[in-house]
Design a protein around this nucleic acid. Structure first.
Lengths: 144, 144
DNA sequence: AATTAAGTGGGGAGAAGTGGGTATATCCAT
DNA sequence: ATGGATATACCCACTTCTCCCCACTTAATT
């Protein structure tokens, strides 16, 4: 399971290191694609295969969702990790996510997300304010 | 069950000791994450896994839920206790909780909470002032 | 007073992140 | 087809951070 927040950078060759803690679970081959809120999703190959199958067989539902799924499937690229555990970000994905030099990598269960650092900070601040009351949210989960 | 209040410090390497009384129950691996009122939650791995499972079962369609999940999962970090029973606080969590040198560690049933000492004192004072209300609330619950 | 346990501080080996050089492959224009 | 430019893959080097170990201080216990 992927968790945590990691600060990395894209170098001149558009390479981004995956957190070392996540590398075993990622494996050598991963799939990177467009994600929600203008970030990038990184899946282990196995996870992606299952997901792609599900997405492909989905009944044609609401048009917004459908077009997003299309974007996600079409935007997928399979990339290898190099010896240092980095992946190469394709140009169109780099552009889609608005990646500058500093990026934030976030662990979210079955995937990693790659964010432009400043975008991530903005998003996080908003999220913190809106769910200031984490207690209430946790309550919904039946945790307490 | 975790109980009690402990005064500790963060050293230059961002390490904080867990109270020795709690170490057996914590185990070697714990998860630290964002908590309410800008404190940090420290869960034994087992407890966290149950919690994470619940988070994973939440629908990701709604953006509010999505951001809450991101906050909790991306905000979480799995850390090991060193031989002295200390954990390393990631930068972003240190910042989130506004931790200076002195911290208060509090036991709360299934978890520990890590507070900046001054924040804790403010919070405690507020709580004490409203303790009459709390008594009243407890009364309503039929505790006394 | 001596011994033990807990909290704190710091040195050093190794790992992780980052940057860059070079060779091979790919593409485009000549 | 050929030459040049661009891109990718692989390798190595440097810097920083993390983790492990040891040591000192204080407090509690015998």
């Amino acid at each position: 399971m992927f968790i945590g927040e990691y600060q990395h950078t894209i170098d001149l060759k558009k390479r981004v290191a995956m957190p070392s803690k996540c590398r075993v679970e990622l494996g050598k081959k991963v799939v990177i694609t467009r994600g929600m809120d203008k970030c990038l999703f990184v899946y282990p190959m196995k996870t992606w295969e299952k997901l792609a199958e599900k997405l492909g067989s989905l009944p044609v539902g609401e048009s917004g969702t459908r077009s997003f799924i299309r974007l996600m499937l079409a935007g997928a690229a399979d990339v290898d990790l190099d010896k240092q555990g980095r992946i190469l970000i394709p140009d169109y994905l780099k552009e889609y996510a608005g990646l500058k030099k500093d990026v934030t990598v976030a662990g979210l269960f079955d995937r990693l997300e790659v964010w432009d650092k400043s975008k991530w900070n903005v998003y996080k601040n908003k999220a913190e304010k809106s769910s200031d009351d984490i207690a209430e949210q946790l309550g919904k989960l039946g945790v307490y």
